[in-house]
Amino acid sequence: MTRIVLVHGIAQQFKGAETLSADWYPALSDGVGLASGKRIAPSEVSMAFYGDLFRPAGHRGIGIPDLDATDIQGDIESELLWEWWKFTATRDPAVPRPDAPARLRTPNMVQRALDALSHSAFFAGLSERMLIFSARQVRSYFTDPGIRAAAQHRLVAQVTPETRVIVAHSLGTVVAYEALCAHPYWHDLTLVTLGSPLAVRNLIFDRLLPRPIHGNARWPAPVTRWTNIFDEGDAVCLVKTLAPRFGGRISDLSVHNGAAAHDVRPYLSARETGQAIAEALAPGPSGVHAEQG
C-alpha cells in the first residue's frame, strides 16, 4: 500500500531502490513523528529509483570515469559549475570569488571553478570528477529524451490509488514536477519538494516540460497542496522559493540542516517536512486515479 512515493536526486547511480529506502525511511519517520506523533510503516513507502540510468557502462576503471576540466560538455555543465561557484563564494570565506565576468567557456576557467568548489565546506569530500559527473547527470536529464522519459516512468510506476504524497529531493523534484504535469487525471496529491532547483532560470526552469510561459510555470494538475522546503545554505537550490514562479499556493518553508545543507536526511527529519507529510496522510478525500487508455 504505497501512500508515500520518494524520488531521489543526483549521484545515486551505484545504489538501488531498497538501499535508498533504507537510508531515507528512518529520517522520514522521525520527521513525521516529530510533527504528529504518528508512525509511518515501511509498507507505506516506496522509492522511485532511476539512478541506474546514469550508471556508466563497464570500463577498466573503478567507479565513475576519470573526468577533468577538459571533459566538460555543453552549456549546462559549465553554467552549473559557475553558479555553484558563485553561490559558495558568497557564503564560504575559504572559496575565492570569481573575478572574471565571462562564463566558463575554457578549460582554465572550469579548472578554477573546480578548484574553488573543492575547498568549499558544501562540496567537501567531492572529487573533481564527482563534481563533473554530478553536473553531467543534470545535463543528461535535459538533453537525453530517453533518460528523461525513463526517469519519469520509474515514478509513474510507483504511484498507486492509495498514494497521497510525493516527496522529492534535488533533481528528483524536476522528475516529479514533469511527471505530475504529464498525468493530469491523477488527483488529490500532495507534493513535498526538498532542496529543489526548479526555479533556477536558464539551467532548470526554462528547460522544463511543459515550457513556462512569460516566466510562469504550469501548476501540476494533480497537486492540491505543495510544500517546498529549503536551506539557505543549500547550493543546489540556488533559488530558494518556488511560489513566485510556480504559484502562490506553494508554501515555501526554510529549515536549517547544519553543515549538510543539501543532505536529504536532515530535510526529511525536519518538523516542517513531517508536518506536510502528516497532513497529506490525514483522513479525508484522497487517492490517485490512474489514467485510462
Rank of each mutant, 00 (worst) to 15 (best):
M1W: 04
R3S: 12
R3G: 06
V5H: 05
L6Q: 01
L6I: 06
V7S: 01
Q12C: 09
A17Y: 10
E18T: 02
T19I: 11
T19E: 11
L20N: 05
S29P: 06
A35Q: 05
S36R: 02
G37S: 03
R39H: 03
S43T: 08
V45W: 00
S46N: 04
S46K: 00
M47N: 01
M47H: 03
G51V: 04
G51P: 05
A57M: 03
G58W: 10
R60N: 10
R60M: 11
I64W: 03
P65I: 08
D68A: 06
D75M: 13
E77T: 08
L80H: 14
L80Y: 13
W82M: 03
E83Q: 13
W85T: 01
T90D: 14
R91V: 14
D92T: 09
V95L: 12
P96D: 07
P98L: 08
A100E: 15
A102Q: 13
R103S: 13
L117A: 06
S120L: 02
A121K: 11
A121E: 15
L126M: 10
S127D: 07
S127R: 07
R129G: 11
M130F: 08
I132T: 04
R136V: 00
S140R: 12
Y141Q: 04
R148V: 04
A149Q: 14
R154G: 10
Q158S: 13
V159S: 01
T163E: 12
I166N: 08
I166H: 13
A168Y: 06
A168T: 08
S170P: 06
V174A: 00
V174Q: 01
A176G: 08
A176V: 07
A179Y: 11
L180M: 14
A182P: 03
Y185S: 13
H187N: 15
L189Q: 06
T190N: 13
L191D: 15
L191Y: 15
L191M: 15
L191R: 09
V192F: 11
S196C: 11
L198W: 09
L198R: 10
A199G: 09
A199L: 05
I204V: 09
I204F: 05
D206H: 11
D206K: 10
L208M: 14
R211Y: 11
P212S: 12
P212W: 11
N216F: 12
A217C: 04
W226V: 04
W226C: 08
I229M: 09
I229S: 05
F230Q: 08
E232I: 13
E232P: 10
V236C: 02
C237I: 01
C237A: 12
K240G: 02
F246I: 05
F246R: 00
G248K: 14
G248I: 13
R249L: 11
I250G: 09
D252P: 06
N257R: 05
N257Q: 10
A259P: 00
A260L: 07
A260C: 06
H262N: 02
V264L: 03
R265V: 05
R265D: 12
P266F: 00
Y267K: 00
L268K: 00
E272P: 03
T273E: 07
Q275M: 10
Q275R: 10
A276S: 05
I277R: 01
E279T: 04
A282W: 02
A282L: 03
A282S: 13
P283A: 07
G284F: 01
H289I: 14
A290V: 09
Q292N: 13
